[in-house]
């Protein structure tokens, strides 16, 4: 494994997932501060400076950002930032570098298959909610987003105590718990390939 690199992610939620997935792939913990969250008020000033520093030290920069609604539009936007700031980085767009989406899209696709009924139940809840009419309300009800779906999925699987329920929160999740997640899912292959290809040393 190369010893000098940064992985830039959008927020702390992504950092938690990437750190744990890194351990799953490489069998070692990623050093503290190697995964850098970049969300904030200023347009990626931290990321820009940290990337320049890493490149000046002969290290590698990986960017793992959300694809959002349009993967190619997002790729173009990030590559134009790369060019404008004269940065050097490899890019992967979550969930799988092909489809639109974000971390929750990826998580939806890597649950333990035994837990599929929970999602079916959620689908029914969404569908019913879409058809519900509330007396005195003129606008349709809002269908909760994917973040709520993942939270509800974990919340249902965890115990009732406050301590257990806290583990559904984004920064406290344990993605390596095989009862909840399948980090060997085929859906993760593109991300695994991206990490291995860039972080493993070419002997």
């Amino acid at each position: 494994m190369i010893d000098r690199f940064h992985i830039f992610v959008e927020g702390k939620t992504d950092k938690v997932f990437v750190e744990q997935y890194f351990y799953h792939v490489f069998g070692v913990s990623i050093p503290k501060d190697f995964v850098v969250p970049t969300n904030g008020k200023d347009n990626r000033q931290n990321a820009t400076n940290k990337m320049k520093t890493m490149s000046a030290n002969g290290g590698k920069n990986l960017v793992i950002f959300d694809a959002d609604d349009d993967v190619e539009k997002r790729r173009t936007e990030l590559l134009s930032w790369k060019e404008k700031e004269n940065l050097d980085f490899e890019l992967f767009l979550i969930p799988n570098d092909k489809e639109a989406g974000a971390l929750e899209t990826l998580l939806e696709n890597i649950i333990n298959p035994n837990n599929e009924p929970i999602f079916k139940c959620w689908d029914k809840y969404e569908s019913d909610l879409g058809q519900l009419k509330i007396k005195g309300r003129t606008t349709p009800l809002t269908i909760p987003g994917k973040k709520a779906k993942i939270y509800a999925y974990l919340s249902a699987l965890l115990g009732k105590s406050d301590d257990e329920q806290k583990l559904a929160q984004t920064e406290k999740r344990d993605y390596r718990n095989p009862l909840h997640w399948n980090l060997d899912a085929e859906y993760l292959e593109p991300l695994k390939e991206f990490l291995k290809c860039n972080i493993e040393k070419n002997e």
């Binding site: 927020g11 702390k12 501060d33 850098v36 969250p37 970049t38 969300n39 904030g40 008020k41 200023d42 347009n43 000033q45 931290n46 400076n49 940290k50 320049k52 520093t53 490149s55 000046a56 030290n57 002969g58």
Partner: peptide, 23 residues
Amino acid sequence: KLEGLQAYKYTYGGLSDACENDV
């Protein structure tokens, strides 16, 4: 290692983001 001494500039936005994200 490759470019010698360098100074990287941060304004308030960068500092604030770094503190918020614990960077």
